[in-house]
Design a binder for these strands. Sequence first.
DNA 1: GTGAAAGCGCTAACAC
DNA 2: GTGTTAGCGCTTTCAC
Lengths: 339, 339
Amino acid sequence: MVTIKDIAKEAKVSVTTVSRALNGYSDVNEETRKRIMEVAKRLNYSPNTLARSLVMKKSKTIGLLVSNLTREGTKDNFTYEVLCGINDAVSRFEYDLIFFSTTSSKQSEKTYTQLCRERRVEGVIIMGIKTNDPYLQEVVESDIPCVLIDIPIVSKTVGNVTTDNLLGAKEAVKHLLKLNHRTIGMINGHNEAFVSQERLKGYKEALAEFGISYNEDLVENGQFTEEDAYKAAVRLLSKHPEMTALFCASDIMALGVIQAAKDLGKNLPVDLSIVGYDDIILSSYVTPSLTTIRQNKYLLGEEAAKLLIDMLDGKTKPYSKVLDTELVIRNSTTACLDQ
Amino acid sequence: MVTIKDIAKEAKVSVTTVSRALNGYSDVNEETRKRIMEVAKRLNYSPNTLARSLVMKKSKTIGLLVSNLTREGTKDNFTYEVLCGINDAVSRFEYDLIFFSTTSSKQSEKTYTQLCRERRVEGVIIMGIKTNDPYLQEVVESDIPCVLIDIPIVSKTVGNVTTDNLLGAKEAVKHLLKLNHRTIGMINGHNEAFVSQERLKGYKEALAEFGISYNEDLVENGQFTEEDAYKAAVRLLSKHPEMTALFCASDIMALGVIQAAKDLGKNLPVDLSIVGYDDIILSSYVTPSLTTIRQNKYLLGEEAAKLLIDMLDGKTKPYSKVLDTELVIRNSTTACLDQ
DNA sequence: GTGAAAGCGCTAACAC
DNA sequence: GTGTTAGCGCTTTCAC
């Protein structure tokens, strides 16, 4: 492998000059620069970023920690789309992305800080992590710049990007309320997700605005999975036949709910209106097509990467960026005719 | 940042001994080792892989070149699932994955070899690349170990993993032939994909087996997109009203074909049987649900990573691995009643 | 069993 | 404008 030493020898200059010429410093004679460039090209030289990073203490890499890069994420295109956004932004700024392959078993062996320091990443983007993940505590205490996706923590080194989950959920439920529904259930995710907490708040606020008191009996957790949501829906609908609408904290869960309702002999959407959350591809393909709250997942990733890079460049202190959501009305919701 | 030098000082030994102790060499006194380990832990030491890689000339990283990590890939969960497989396998073998963020504009500035050498990756996995991509030629000539996904090239340093596209397509078309269809069209991808060439061969072979001569007028390219496939289907179905079945080289395209057929007033599947390829999630959700050829995308990624790592470990020479496909029969195909 | 010393490929004072 | 030198953090002969 050819090094700057080889170039130096060939061009009859010192390695310093080669380094300076290659890095575009101004204090190099135009002629020598040209000669050096020519030699570098002829020898097919590639700089060794490992060596450079070692001395500069800058690796130009961003770590990516995805705790749910699993086949379950396939239906839900969430992770993938966020990834696209991150990748596009990161590449625009000449950083490379290193994928930390972390399984829960490995987490116990290696701490978050170790993971990052070993690879000398300059910053980290984290997604899909639960609020009770042991890494999270470390992230906050660590001095490694980091941007969290969907976890509203801000510290000296930690920023985050998320969508407005409270408002999104509120809008979803208000949509149902405006359609005259008065007994509205909710299938939430799980308690270890900030988004679930926020979406529950939104649900409550919407009800309150319409003078309806909150009944915790109408809310169940579906663990963000189709199967659990199916079961939760069956329980909820059996126990509360008066329920005319259900708000689900994710489209995947709404899929399970739709199936449950069908299996219970419900005629959708007349017997039951359903609103999802996310706007995944499948939403427009299920029958009935799903009314939902759209999150711009690509933008979520892009903004996360941009925020992190701005932090790394010292252009900004960490902060919390909240993106808008949008109600998408399809065929799974209709006016309530009861009473 | 604490280094082995700090540990050496603290433990009152030389850096050599620290290095040996930390790396589990046998020729270190048990007591010294224990002391060193204890100090390392107390100082919260993390090894610097950059420095290690520099001297060892092994980076324990695998490059990932994905040329279509775009939002268009969202519908099609292909890239995502392959990625999951790669990630799982790679993490099992203690490698990390580095994502080369390559846009076509960047490709012209930096050659494939440069990209790899700069980061000193030990090997590369490439997917989504077209057969006319300028990088491909380089890949073959380069001495960097590489595994291609869905491109059947083998060289001294290049292996590949793919599914049996010829057989898959053949099975798809034979399924239609057995249902008594005799005028079967095909919407293929584009000529710059090996899989398209193979699937076309499979289509031809199936027809030949049933004594039907190939008519190129019944085949159009749909560029692997829903929109182009829609247009191609409209053209094909208008020009050939006698056509009773269509084989599509991807499910995404089949989605477009279904829409086209509906828009032309066709009653599916009675008026037109459709077979797709891939078995994406949407396939079971569209109406009618799609008969298709299933590819195990996760396995594709997993096998690619395993092959590459085996090559890196010198356990095997590069070779071509072909995975099986499976016909999944749903509601978009039915017996032909014509004649 | 342990240490001194060289070197991986690069950048950056500092001198000239 | 260019070269000398030191050093980034680590591994690895080689000698003791």
